[in-house]
């Protein structure tokens, strides 16, 4: 936990099992993990909620930027601009000691458009 800087999103990759048609595949995926000052962890899904392009963190602007149609998201995942219809999707998270568990990817219910 100590390695994640407070207030700066970090992109992390992990491996997950997914049912893909007729087979179960083990595949890599990623999440943007944010640690707040009170040590709360939020893990965002890696795709823009507009058309699914991969977005990135722009340190200079202090916001997430999607390069496809310029959707902008705050560090909390809220839409700041562009065509994104809803906030960033979030993984369910659970911290066990030094281990972060990521669960289902879902739209934050309180922020749904």
């Amino acid at each position: 936990m100590a390695q994640i800087p407070i207030g700066t999103p970090v992109e992390m990759t992990f491996r997950r099992m997914r049912v893909d048609g007729w087979k179960v595949v083990s595949e890599q995926n990623s999440a943007w993990v944010v640690k707040s000052p009170n040590n709360q962890i939020t893990a965002f899904g890696p795709q823009c909620t507009h058309l699914g392009c991969a977005y990135h963190w722009d340190e200079a602007k202090n916001e997430f930027v999607c390069p496809c149609h310029n959707s902008l998201f705050s560090i909390e995942g809220k839409v700041l601009g562009g065509p994104a219809p809803r906030p960033l999707d979030q993984y369910e998270t659970k911290v066990q000691g030094a281990t972060l568990l990521l669960g289902r990817l879902q739209t934050p219910p309180e922020q749904s458009a």
């Binding site: 993990v33 659970k94 568990l101």
Partner: peptide, 16 residues
Amino acid sequence: THAIKSMVWVWTWVRL
């Protein structure tokens, strides 16, 4: 992989 949560998703862990 840590443990199967459902047929579609599993809990996975990222060691920090």
